[in-house]
């Protein structure tokens, strides 16, 4: 029992034996084949893999955006499998933060309103010191009243990061957050995510196929053909690239 409790407190999110199958019959596609993964609290995890390896599917399943076919997913203490739409929605609102590749913000709201949107939907007041910390970390104080259309792509992603962090979620899921950015803006975003882990103990999962982006993480999970094929701690861009080559060969060679 003590061991379990210790584990659960250390683990922010967990997938166990997760299968995801789309369609049926001829059109049947198996995206995940028994993936088990624990995301430790305060850890920055990158998920990599070639296109079609299931990395986005894994993220969607773990974030409560998609239902798994078999297996269990937990965020904190909450078991996602079997939750109703309303339950999943509340979970996403209160315990998950998202940063998507693009179209992160409502064009009609100002940056500040966008950042506070999940809290507003939940009817919660922001924690003022934490809000200030987040705003200062992403460096957006002078842009708060601007609409997304008045911000650059990099600034928009920083707003999205602030939004993901401001509700102090259990896990922040970032899906190719730098995919649409030039390298400098991308580096800014990756830096913020890194700092949110290091300085504030936030748990972050990032799906990417950019080896340089993945090297900001504490560990990298490599997916191939719906399975975890490799794991690496303390990654460097070169090591990641080597591993990717090997996976490509092995997957391609099958």
């Amino acid at each position: 029992m003590t061991a379990t409790t210790a584990t659960t407190t250390r683990v922010a999110a967990r997938a166990s034996e997760v299968w995801k199958v789309y369609g049926s019959g001829e059109a049947r596609v198996t995206a995940l084949r028994g993936v088990s993964l624990e995301l430790l609290r305060g850890q920055y995890t990158a998920v990599m893999g070639p296109s079609g390896s299931g990395k986005s599917t894994l993220m969607h399943c773990m974030a409560g955006l998609d239902a798994v076919t078999r297996g269990d997913v937990y965020i904190g203490q909450t078991r996602l499998t079997g939750l109703s739409d309303a339950g999943l929605t509340r979970l996403r609102r209160d315990q998950v933060g998202f940063v998507f590749q693009q179209f992160n913000l409502l064009p009609t709201l100002s940056a500040k309103e966008n950042i506070l949107l999940p809290l507003a939907i939940a009817g919660r007041k922001p924690d003022k010191p934490w809000y200030d910390t987040v705003i200062d970390t992403v460096g957006l104080r002078d842009r708060l009243s601007h609409r997304p259309s008045e911000l650059s792509g990099g600034q928009q992603q920083r707003v999205a990061c602030a939004r993901a962090l401001v509700s102090r979620p259990e896990v922040v899921f970032a899906d190719e957050p730098t995919g649409n950015l030039d390298s400098r803006s991308g580096a800014d975003i990756l830096g913020f995510l890194r700092r949110s882990v290091t300085d504030f103990g936030q748990t972050v999962v990032m799906v990417t196929h950019d080896a340089n982006a993945a090297s900001y993480a504490d560990r990298v999970i490599f997916l191939g053909d719906g399975r975890i094929v490799h794991e690496m701690a303390g990654p460097t861009p070169d090591a990641i690239l080597d591993t990717l080559k090997k996976i490509d060969l092995s997957v391609g060679g099958e």
């Binding site: 609102r93 209160d94 998202f98 998507f100 409502l106 949107l117 999940p118 939907i121």
Partner: peptide
């Protein structure tokens, strides 16, 4: 559609 999807993703309930 996209905005609605985003809102739903970050926690807007169906009724909302």
């Amino acid at each position: 559609t996209r905005e609605l999807g985003l809102l739903r993703a970050i926690g807007l309930r169906r009724a909302q």
